[in-house]
Design a protein around this nucleic acid. Structure first.
Lengths: 314, 314
DNA sequence: GCATGCCCATAGCCTACGGCTATGGTCACC
DNA sequence: GGTGACCATAGCCGTAGGCTATGGGCATGC
């Protein structure tokens, strides 16, 4: 017997309807049917009489109903009490992250954390790595997701690399691919192409400009100064191409990305916190949650251009 | 969170010892460790302080303890109440089965059923198919596992084929294989070999003798009249070879079996009950349990010579 | 002081279970 | 008799939970 089966049982008992119970439980109807049947098998007795449009409880079902309710209530109570004692009932995590991360991976991770610890307030600050580090140093943030390497090699921070990401060249979906061979591009192919460029402060901006200069040319900027979303919209509108982190292309049908040929432009994303103060319980919990979330992502969800770095010991 | 995790938690809390808790819970120690860890992750708080030889509960663990106990108690109560109402709390299943089935598959199936419905008394009668059918007809049995075809083609019984089994030629493990090619034997190779034969009444006896006569010879019987166990021991002792159902060779290192070449000697095992009286709740439950037990056996557990026949609708 | 043993954690593998989509079958109602 | 509602069945897939083998830390003993 399992908690879920009891929950499904309650849902059917309340709605007197398998299909609606399945909707209520956020699962497909056959999944719920199967679990109810498994529960009945397990107990050795049918719990419902299945009549057309009129599902009713059998005596066995009637007997189970109050106990199932009580068990699930106790379960909730247990959750709450333990979290209360562990200081996870109320609290706050102040998290800093770069715009690309906020748009990409963070949403799901935050949603999962909120589901497990609904009492914890989540404050997200979206900014460039330098600003985030500054805020971290002033104690305005508990954790920050930043881009390595840090310009200020301040030893006051502990950084744990967690992701390695490929930068890609993005262009409007309708336009011909900017890649000569259609599959990948060299940095030098950016020469004389109109580039859409982020405002100062974005790590990607510095990385791109630096790579161009290292290749021996100064890029031609069509537009300059936008935030993440603006840059992508400018590219969609055909103003030029841009170099962006691969993950922001998720759910952007108006854009196509081409990876850079080796040597690629990689950026390493790290989790940072102050060395001198121990993170709060809530911050540690979020850190753990984020790490398990990342390591449990499938290769499919990650895509080609993203790689999780196994935490050394976390 | 899962019931098992709570049970493991209680075991550790009681024993203050992971290894002993694992023994108590009948699982490997790493499995228990992993589940405890998962529970801690789920709740967002450690439940135990792991000190050498001195495991103690954290405050969170202390808070969880009474609730976990209550939940598991409620779980047991729910089981009992539902089974009480479904008439599965007390009761009896009178089951007939042939000796080979009792020795082979039945033990595990019975154990599983008893685990789920501890209040149900299990009465097993071990006998030949003819006797079992007779007992079924007199109402002395609820269900019988018999060999098809029935000699008495009495329409008073419903039979459901559930297993098809190969008969094999068995010999002492040390002796040279009786098979000429070492892999399989023809019926005719039994001619002039000393056979150890069951007493009258065993279906296998009739099947073997019939097959020999159909092949045009009368077999030479070294010993005759034994029950299943005696026959196998005689073979082990080197008195001769015997034709037996494949499943009795399980856990018999002193014996080796060789399948018969095509046309093989197959026997079909069926579940029988009276047509005129509806089986009791308990009998139906056992029937269901047996069927799911069989269909969930792995190919590995079944072996080469045994095949489950999918029940038509059961 | 190193060897040994106890005991919990980690790693890696395998099966089974819970999820999904697609489809079937049955009843009610037009 | 056609149609729609609704639950069951079938078949596929990924992950969770089981196992064995091994690591690694802390005691204890010779």
């Amino acid at each position: 017997m399992q908690f879920q089966q009891l929950a499904y049982f309650l849902a059917v008992a309340e709605t007197r309807h398998f299909t609606r119970a399945a909707e209520l439980s956020r699962v497909a109807q056959p999944s719920l049917s199967k679990q109810i049947r498994a529960l009945e098998e397990d107990l050795g007795a049918p719990l419902f009489r299945r009549a057309r449009g009129n599902i009713t409880l059998t005596p066995a079902g009637e007997a189970l109903l109050p106990l199932a309710q009580r068990i699930l209530t106790d379960l909730e109570t247990a959750r709450r009490e333990v979290q209360e004692l562990a200081g996870m009932r109320r609290g706050r995590v102040r998290l800093g992250a770069t715009p690309s991360l906020c748009a990409g991976l963070l949403a799901d991770a935050l949603a999962g954390f909120h589901g497990r610890f609904p009492g914890i307030e989540l404050q997200v600050e979206e900014s460039g790595s330098r600003d985030l580090i500054r805020a971290l140093g002033k104690g305005e943030l508990d954790l920050a997701l930043i881009i390595l390497p840090l310009q200020s090699s301040d030893p006051a921070f502990v950084t744990t690399p967690i992701l390695r990401e490929n930068l890609v060249v993005v262009s409007a979906a309708g336009a011909p691919s900017p890649a000569v061979d259609g599959a990948s591009m060299r940095i030098t192919e950016l020469r004389d192409r109109p580039l859409v460029m982020f405002r100062r402060g974005y790590d990607v901006r510095e990385a791109t400009l630096h790579a161009c200069r290292a290749a021996g040319f100064e890029p031609h900027l069509a537009v300059e100064g936008g935030e993440m979303d603006a840059v992508l919209r400018f590219v969609e509108a055909g103003l030029g191409i841009a170099v962006v982190p691969s993950m922001v292309l998720k759910n952007r049908p108006g854009l196509q990305g081409v990876p850079l040929a080796r040597p690629r432009l990689l950026r390493t994303i790290a989790l940072a916190h102050r060395k001198d103060v121990d993170p709060s319980h809530t911050a540690k919990a979020f850190r753990r949650h984020l790490m398990t979330y990342l390591t449990h992502l499938t290769r499919d969800e990650l895509g080609e251009d993203l790689e999780v770095i196994a935490p050394l010991t976390a």
